[in-house]
Amino acid sequence: MGSSTLFMPSSTVHLHRHDLPPDLKLGPMVAVDTETMGLNPHRDRLCLVQLSAGDGVAHCVQIVPETLGGRGADCPNLKQLLSDPATVKLFHFARFDVAILRKSLGVTVAPVRCTKIASKLVRTFTDRHGLKELCRELLGVDISKQQQSSDWGAAELTTEQLQYAASDVLHLHALWARLEALLVREGRLELAEHCFRFLPARGELDLLGYVEPDIFSH
């Protein structure tokens, strides 16, 4: 397993091929994001999993299929972390990420927090709940989405891709702190917790094709 490090002005990005190092400790809450070949979990493969302890350091695990000389889902350290009941996994739009991680790695990711759901529960005065908008409006941070549609299945990822991938997890802890305070203020934290607990099941429903028809509709 090879690793490389990219130093950015205010953060550090470690690229790990195939799995996390066995001795890596990321604390009780880990920000997580994924990059894939597309947005259809049945068709599009998982390429990268990004993680951060909220300390300005991002760890990116490149998932390479066996057909391309990699190890595929053979990443025991990553899978242990994602399924560890003592570690909270913090996402933005967890619904997609927990589904693709279930499909690609065979793990149920829990417990989960989602900044997008939190934003929709308390920021009802706006329909702007994207990560870029939340970072700008709540943290005063501008993140670039230029590399969002790039080729994440490439054998060698560019510096720009890694910078983009890291930005998706580096600010989630700060965002969650702001949004959790709003959930408490509006009396909706318990409701949010119920939503978060349902997310692994929502991912399973998506994988089974229950997007349309929605089983919760009339």
Rank of each mutant, 00 (worst) to 15 (best):
H18I: 00
M1G: 13
D55H: 11
C75D: 08
F96P: 10
A31C: 06
V98F: 07
H59K: 10
V32K: 05
H59L: 08
R95N: 05
H59E: 11
G106N: 03
L51E: 02
D23F: 10
L48W: 00
P22L: 10
L51C: 06
L90A: 13
L90F: 11
L24A: 10
R102P: 00
R113H: 15
H42Q: 10
L101A: 12
K103N: 10
P111S: 12
L78S: 03
L46M: 14
L20S: 09
K120V: 05
A31L: 09
A99G: 10
R113F: 14
C60S: 14
G72A: 08
A58P: 11
A118Q: 04
S83N: 03
S3F: 03
K120P: 01
S11H: 13
R102L: 12
L46G: 10
A99E: 06
D97W: 02
F93E: 00
T87C: 14
L26G: 05
S119C: 07
H92Q: 13
D74L: 07
T12V: 15
F93T: 00
H42P: 07
R17Q: 10
D97M: 05
S4W: 12
S4G: 15
R102W: 05
L82M: 06
I117V: 15
P76K: 14
V49R: 10
L6N: 03
I100A: 11
P76G: 11
V107F: 07
D84P: 13
R71L: 15
S83L: 02
A73W: 01
N40S: 07
V88L: 15
I63S: 13
S119R: 02
P111F: 12
A94Y: 05
V57L: 01
G72C: 13
K103W: 01
G69T: 08
S4C: 08
Q50P: 07
